[in-house]
């Protein structure tokens, strides 16, 4: 029974981390930048939502705001850091180190503002426990983590393969020079890519999923 519980817990954690991995993969495939700072952006989304809930905002407003903030931050990092480095023909190693620097800054700011302690969303329904097949216990939070993560993954796949914009991003990822010749305008690609991955990430940060801890990054 312990094995089954560990199996279920592993799926829950794997789904939450899977969304981060999908984001890494999507960004790297599109702009060939190893965007490790994304882990920090992902974490900020949780803190924004937590802060707004703590200040009495409705959950829906908190989550939408978190999505907007993270999308803006991703676009800011792209425009003010990666794009500038690209214009100066920085190597991939330089970009990686810059991204690590951004991650360290974000982590430090979060630790300073929210402390390094684990925070939890104070939503009673998130702690509701369900028993699956005997002694396997799953909370509403864990169930929602899996459902939202799978939905987000399906959404990214659907966007990437089923929409014209997604196909354009993949075309730019495949061959930016050819994409430019065919007037696909590669430059907006990174911004769209950031926006899309942020949406998926923040959506995966449902209430209580998460116990945010900047030091854990």
């Amino acid at each position: 029974m312990l094995a089954l519980q560990l199996l279920c817990n592993g799926i829950v954690t794997g789904c939450a981390l899977g969304i981060v991995a999908v984001s890494f993969s999507f960004v790297y495939a599109t702009i060939k930048i190893f965007h490790v700072a994304h882990a920090g952006v992902y974490t900020i989304g949780g803190y924004v939502a937590w802060s707004m809930l703590a200040h009495g905002f409705p959950a829906s407003v908190a989550f939408v705001t978190a999505i907007v903030v993270c999308t803006a931050l991703g676009a800011l990092i792209q425009s003010q850091l990666y794009a500038r480095l690209e214009r100066r023909r920085a190597t991939h190693l330089v970009v990686l180190i810059a991204s690590l620097g951004v991650l360290a800054v974000i982590q430090n700011i979060l630790s300073a503002v929210f402390t390094a302690n684990i925070l939890q969303f104070n939503l009673p329904w998130g702690s509701e426990v369900f028993h699956l097949g005997g002694n396997v216990r799953l909370t509403m939070t864990q169930i929602l983590t899996v459902l939202v993560s799978l939905t987000a993954y399906a959404g990214v796949m659907g966007f990437s393969h089923g929409t014209i914009l997604g196909k354009q991003i993949r075309a730019v990822a495949s061959n930016p020079f050819l994409a430019e010749i065919t007037r696909l305008r590669p430059q907006p690609g990174p911004y769209l890519c950031h926006g899309n991955r942020i949406r998926t990430c923040v959506l995966a940060r449902h209430p209580g999923a998460a116990r945010f801890r900047p030091a854990a990054l």
Partner: peptide, 18 residues
């Protein structure tokens, strides 16, 4: 670059850890 690969392997790795 594989979205599916990243998602599946994240679950596999966490399962291995657990």
């Amino acid at each position: 670059g594989s979205i599916t690969g990243a998602f599946v392997l994240a679950i596999v790795i966490t399962e291995l850890q657990n």
